[in-house]
Amino acid sequence: MKQTRRSFLRRSAAAATGLAAVAAALSPLRELEEGQMPDLEGFLQKHYKEMSEEEMVRALERIEARVEKDYGVRAQVSDVRAQDGVEFVYALNLSRCIGCRRCVHACVAENNQSRAPEIQYIRVLEMPRGTLDLEKGNHHYDHPTVPDDDHYYLPVQCHQCANPPCTKVCPVEATWTEPDGITVIDYDWCIGCRYCEAACPYWARRFNFTKPEIPKEEVNPRMSYLSNRPRPSGVMEKCTFCLHKTRNGELPACLEVCPVGARKFGNVLDPESEVRKILEKKRVFVLKEEANTLPRFFYYFDERYAAGGGPEPGGAPNHSLPADDVPKGSAPAGSGEHGEHGEGG
């Protein structure tokens, strides 16, 4: 076929267009910082459940190298597996929680969440007494001291559901529930579509809009593949009950820091465990029971009755005193909200 000037120009123009289109499609890669491009082996890394032991060892080495490069910290990254005969359950005593947010920040410190933009797994809702309407909750409360007399505090985090909506919507099966009840994410498999964030009724999932920013001195070097290793940009993350700690028998960071002992954690299959006792003996409820998510996160109250035998008046000035020790006549103005309990008794 004869090559004319016209056909040559036409072909070269088409080729240039194609090349430019490919370059444009790849141009987001230019925004990656130096060294953020995955190497070939990392690019070909398999799904967490399909990796052999050897492949997992190499994956953990890659993560350690990446953490050292990005944050200048020599980390110990492990892959802790679920134990047989263990199903983790969390219980939170609403009669004790004072809303101090220690759990929120201990969680951030333990799990290497991004500091800016800020990512937190626990949201402490300040709720008006007498309602469980989450729409009335406020997580921006800013009193000089807590607890506030007219409110109670409802910390919400991942409920590790037995019937989780979040894992069902994942188009790539990057998130699933482990045998011990913890719902986890393979951060290297997640495509960042955020379907799970929309599906979760408890606002428990967070998206990394940017590469997490963590000050070097605050990076927790004890990491695991499924929990607190630093996440790449563009993937989801969530509470994992600190599985790098709890699968080794320790307690989650949010529980350890709780100054009032409102948080309880344990193995529900152990009849002597604290959480089992709570489920058996306390008045327990779950959030949004009608969603049929079957949470493994339970809230409970203490039985406390006022001297008159009726329910405790709203706005008891003190969370830790038995009700009959509350000074009489000092019920704060907030008790008007609960009309019938305000006076008498």
Binding site: I98, G99, C100, R101, R102, V104, H105, P117, E118, Q120, R123, N138, H139, H140, Y141, D142, H143, P144, T145, V146, P147, P259, V260, N318, H319, S320, L321
Partner: peptide, 20 residues
Amino acid sequence: PAFPRIAPLPGPNTLRLPPP
């Protein structure tokens, strides 16, 4: 024996909504 009131740690910086 009452547990003393303490100052809460900083609230979330959600970048999206002002307080209610």
